[in-house]
Design a protein around this nucleic acid. Structure first.
Lengths: 359, 359
DNA sequence: AATCAATAAGAGACCGGTCTCTTTTAGAAG
DNA sequence: CTTCTAAAAGAGACCGGTCTCTTATTGATT
C-alpha cells in the first residue's frame, strides 16, 4: 500500500521562534502558556504567531503531556433519544470543565464495545464513560482501569467493577410501574426489551446480562408474583433489537390466544413500534390494552391518548457521571461512588382496567 | 498471574523490541504492519507484544504519519433526530471504510462552530464534515481547505465555497409543500424556523444566512405570491431556537387576530411544540388548522391525525457526504461535487381546507 | 569459487510539542 | 567596582511511533 505524504507542513513553534528571533523553548513557553517570559518577548512571539497564523498541534502537545483533554464516551445507540439526551448532559458538563468528547457507538454489541474502548484508549483519552452492554465479559473495562485511566459507568452498574457509577433504581421503578398496571386490574402483563439472550426466550434472570434490564425484570416479576399472577415470566419478550424485530414480535404477542392486556416497554423506541402495531390492529388504548414505557420521549405526550411513562432523569444522569469522572480527572482521589438518581412516573392516559375486568 | 505492572508507564515498541531481542525498527515493522519481516521474527515479536500486553499509542502513530483515521463532524444539534440520523449515515460509511468519527456540537452558534473546527483541526482529523450554521463568516471553513484537509458540507450549501456538498433541493421541496397548502385553499400560511435574524422579525431573504432555510423561504414565498397571497412574508416567524421559545412564539402566532390557517414547520422539533400548543388551545387538526413539517420524525406518524411531512433522505444524506469525503481522503482528486438528493412528501392527515373556506 | 542481487535486520533522524538543565543577563548588596 | 542572586532565555533530551538509509545475510548466477 502506498503512503501518501501529506505535504501540508503547518506552522510549528520553531517557525514562530525563528520569525520572532527567539529560541524554540521561549516561543514554546509563550505559545504553550507555561513557564516565565518577559512581556516584550511575549508580545514579539504573539505577533509572529499571529502573522504566521500558528495553530498548535494538539497531537504533539498531548503526546508529551500525556493528557488529551478528551473524554471518551461509549454508548449503546446514539439514535436512541435516551442516549442522545444523556450525551448532551455529558457534553455540557465536559465543556464547562474544558474537556471535549469523543463519541463511539457500540450498537449494544460487546465486540463493537470492546473495539471502541481499545480505540479510545489508543487515542489516549483522559477518561472514559461507558454504558456496558453486558456484564459477562468486562475484561476490556478492567483494562481501562488498569491503564490508569478513570472509568465511569452510565445507566448500568457492574457489581464486580468498583468504579464511579450513576444509575437509577431500575428495580424499584419497574416495581412501581408494574404496580400501576396490577392495581388497574391487569394480570396478563408483558415486558418487552431489546436485550436478547440465547434462544430468544426468557427462562431466568441469569440469562440477562444488561444490569438495568435485569433489575427491571426482577422488579416486574416480584410485583406480579406478589399479586398472585401465575407464571408472569411467560409474557417477557426479548430481542426487540430493531424497529422491524419489534414490530414482528409485537404482532405475534398481540395475536396470540393468551394476549396480554397490558405492556411495559423497556424503551421508547420499542414502545413506539408497539404503539403502531396496536393502532394497526385496531386496539384502543387504554380500553383494549394498556401501555407504559420507560423514557419520557417527546412523542409520548402527543399521542391520543398520551402515554404513561417512567421519567428517568436522563440529562442529569449524563451530567452527573461526567462530573464524577471530571473530579477524578482533576486528581481527586476517593473511593468509587455509586449514585442512584430518583425517578418518577408520569401518569398520562394509556393505562386503564383490562377489557375482561369490565365484564 | 505474573506480577501486574503497577507502573503507569505504558508498553512501547522499544519495550517489545528489547524482550523480543530485536531492534526497535524491526519491532515497529511487525507491530505497525508495514515493511518486511521474516516469519520467525514476526512470531517472536508478536509473542513478546502479547506477553507485555502492548497497546499502540495512536497519538504517536498519527503524529508521524500525519493521518489520524478520524473524520471530524460538526453538526448543528445532535439531539435533533434529523442530525442524529444523518450522523448514523456518516458513522456507517466511516466505519465501513475504516475511519472513526469525532462528533462536535455547534448548537447552531457560529462561534461554537468556529471553536469546534479549530479543535478538530488541532486534533489533526483527516477530514471534516460540517453543517455550516451560517454563510456570512466562513473564514474558518476556508482555513480547513487551506490546511489541506478535505471538507464536505452536509445539508447546507455555500455558494462561495467550492467543496463536496450533499443537500436536498430545499427550494423545490418547500414549493411543493406550500403548494399542497395553497391547493387546499389556504391563504394565510405561516413558516416557522429556528433560524434567527436581527430584530427577530423577517424583512427579506438577505437576513437569512442558513442556506437551506433561505431556499425554503424563497420557495415558500414564490408559491404564495404566485397564488396571489398578499404579503405572505408577514407570517414568517424566526427564532424558534428552543422548545420554550417555540412555544411562546406559537402561542402568539395562534392567538393573533390574523391567525394563520396553516403552518409549515422547518423541523420536527418545532412542529412538535407547535402541535402541543395547538392541542392546548383546542385547535383541531386539520379542521381548524393545517400543519406540515420538514423531517419525517418518528412521532409524526403516531399522532391523531398523523402529520404530513417532507421526508428528506436523511440517512442517505449523511452516508453520501461521508462517502464523498472518504473518496477524497483516499487520494481521489476531482472537482468538487454538489449532490442533490431527491425528496418526497408523505401526505398524511394534517392538511385540510381552511375553516373559513367551508363557510 | 566469486560476484551480484535481493532480502532481512539495524541505526538513527524525525514529527511538534513539553520540560529539565544550563547559560546569560540584570539588579541589588557589599 | 565586585560579587551574588534571581529572572529570563537558550540548548537539547524526550514522548512513541514511522521511515529512510545503511549494513548484514542469503541464494542464485556464471
Amino acid at each position: 500500500m502506498k503512503r501518501t505524504a501529506p505535504k501540508t507542513q503547518s506552522i510549528t513553534v520553531s517557525d514562530v521562534a525563528r520569525v520572532a528571533n527567539v529560541s524554540k523553548a521561549t516561543a514554546a513557553r509563550v505559545l504553550g502558556g507555561y513557564g516565565v517570559v518577559s512581556d516584550t518577548i511575549r508580545a514579539n512571539v504573539m505577533a509572529a504567531a499571529k502573522a504566521l497564523d500558528y495553530r498548535p498541534n494538539e497531537l504533539a502537545r498531548s503526546m508529551t503531556t500525556g493528557r488529551s483533554g478528551i473524554i471518551g464516551v461509549v454508548v449503546g445507540d446514539i439514535e436512541n433519544p435516551f442516549f442522545s439526551l444523556a450525551v448532551r448532559g455529558i457534553s455540557d458538563a465536559a465543556r464547562a470543565a474544558g474537556f471535549n468528547v469523543i463519541l463511539a457507538n457500540s450498537g449494544e454489541r460487546i465486540d463493537a464495545e470492546r473495539a471502541a474502548v481499545r480505540l479510545l484508549i489508543g487515542k489516549r483519552v483522559d477518561g472514559l464513560i461507558v454504558t456496558p452492554s453486558e456484564s459477562r465479559d468486562i475484561s476490556h473495562l478492567r483494562d481501562i482501569h488498569r491503564s490508569g485511566r478513570p472509568l465511569a459507568l452510565l445507566d448500568r452498574a457492574l457489581p464486580d467493577l468498583d468504579v464511579d457509577t450513576v444509575t437509577v433504581d431500575d428495580r424499584d421503578i419497574a416495581m412501581r410501574a408494574t404496580r400501576i398496571l396490577v392495581d388497574a386490574g391487569h394480570s396478563k402483563i408483558a415486558y418487552v426489551t431489546a436485550v436478547d439472550a440465547e434462544g430468544n426466550e426468557y427462562r431466568d434472570l441469569g440469562q440477562i446480562y444488561t444490569s438495568s434490564v435485569r433489575e427491571r425484570i426482577d422488579g416486574f416479576l416480584k410485583v406480579c408474583r406478589d399479586a398472585g399472577i401465575d407464571r408472569p415470566e411467560r409474557h417477557i419478550r426479548l430481542g426487540a433489537t430493531s424497529p422491524d424485530e419489534t414490530r414482528k414480535l409485537a404482532d405475534k404477542l398481540l395475536s396470540g390466544p393468551d394476549r396480554p392486556t397490558a405492556i411495559l416497554a423497556s424503551d421508547s423506541l420499542i414502545a413506539l413500534e408497539i404503539f403502531k402495531v396496536m393502532r394497526q390492529r385496531g386496539l384502543r388504548i387504554p380500553q383494549d390494552i394498556s401501555l407504559i414505557t420507560f423514557h419520557d420521549a417527546d412523542w409520548t405526550s402527543v399521542t391520543t391518548p398520551p402515554i404513561t411513562v417512567v421519567d428517568q432523569p436522563v440529562y442529569a444522569l449524563g451530567k452527573s457521571v461526567a462530573e464524577l469522572l471530571i473530579r477524578r480527572l482533576k486528581g481527586e482521589a476517593r473511593p468509587a461512588e455509586r449514585l442512584i438518581l430518583p425517578t418518577t412516573i408520569i401518569e398520562r392516559g394509556s393505562v386503564g382496567p383490562p377489557a375482561a375486568y369490565k365484564l
